[in-house]
Design a protein around this nucleic acid. Structure first.
Lengths: 208, 208
DNA sequence: ATGCTATCCCCCAGAAAGGGGGATATTTTT
DNA sequence: AAAAATATCCCCCTTTCTGGGGGATAGCAT
């Protein structure tokens, strides 16, 4: 499977775009089939370009990269898209990943990293620069000093998944009153007095 | 800040452990202060070892790596831990990340990748091998073909965060009856008839 | 031995949920 | 321009759930 990878660039800065183009074209099995200064310019050609991988900037005139991402993904579901941008705020990163980006690189990435990333996402993999990996990993980390006990956490987790107290009681083979007891303690510990506030507080503090 | 990085290895395979030890000790600013065949052997020495980074295997006799992870994190909060294992199932990866791992590498990682990872996590960053990045990124991707409208998704999302219909109505400046209408349609589209089932189905299908 | 945890019990009023049945205006799609 | 989808609002109703108050008890860990 040493096939030529068809690549499309969408990047508004002429210098950067041409730089990436020559960088990627120098790789034996890469072929930059087209390079556009915006998504609006690219959209009518993407079907025929039929790229395996698109390198997509976020900031550009007209439809921006994050807006374009789901549109492209729907039109060309098998195309893998790498966001290539100077921005690395958590909001942008999560937005891009939920919308189907296969990679997220910041523009300080080395040539080798970019080439690796293209190869990686072309097989359905994931690629991100270290600063992005940092953001993503931090989003997973739970607070290890939660005031909630195991049981309380278990119950709050189920509440956050929409289960009612009777349902929880049933699932855990305990009485509704026991669930109620735990919930009371959860509310005291989190200093709240409603389901919504408990979930909100617990998520903010990463207890669940 | 060109300080020597103090490193501890916890890995039960003698050959592999010694291999990593010599690999890392060959790096100028790295110092493998100790290497143990299990966490149970390591635990009484970790405080004095005072490592900046720990490379931690999952599979080992006695307390395994994932069990040890939160314990170490609590005892040495400023120590950054990299999981180094042959396993890369989503469950293990998520477990490790939520428990505070700063990196997750599989053992097919190159020497350069491992060295990079140690450096990266020592500054609080994140490091993962490409197969792990793949798992993590896929966990973020939403289904772009949700049957739910924007408004319905917004409302279901709020329900999943514990808000009641009156609260949602208030936040969105619409009538409770409107919220009710949307919820009815959500239930029909998802073929459910309760909050819990709606959340469950929507999460499974990645609509929210 | 004291505290924390998990379990269960009762009272109560008010709130919320979910199943029906609609209507209407605005958008979007065709 | 017509048809479909969406977002908004209205009424009926019963059942279920919630949260606040007051407890008790057995086991486990420090």
């Amino acid at each position: 499977m040493n096939q030529i990878l068809r690549i499309v660039l969408i990047e508004d800065d002429d210098i950067i775009r041409m730089g990436y183009q020559s960088l990627l074209n120098d790789v034996d099995d890469f072929n930059v089939v087209n390079a556009y200064a915006s998504y609006d310019l690219a959209k009518k050609h993407l079907e025929t370009d039929n790229p395996d991988v698109i390198l997509l900037d976020i900031q550009m005139p007209g439809t921006n990269g994050l807006q374009a991402l789901p549109i492209i993904k729907k039109a060309l579901p098998s195309t893998n898209i790498i966001i290539l941008t100077v921005f690395d705020s958590p909001e942008l990163v999560f937005e891009a990943l939920t919308m189907g980006a296969g990679g997220y690189l910041t523009k300080n990435s080395s040539a080798a990293k970019i080439i690796d990333a293209v190869r990686e996402v072309s097989t359905g993999g994931g690629a991100m620069s270290t600063n992005v990996a940092r953001i993503v990993m931090h989003s997973f980390q739970k607070n290890l000093n939660s005031p909630l006990t195991k049981r309380e956490t278990e119950i709050l987790d189920r509440i956050a998944n929409g289960q009612t107290k009777p349902q929880i009681a049933n699932d855990l083979f305990i009485d509704q009153e026991t669930v109620r007891s735990h919930v009371k303690n959860i509310y005291i510990k989190l200093d709240v007095n409603s389901k919504a506030d408990a979930i909100k507080t617990a998520k903010e503090k990463r207890f669940i």
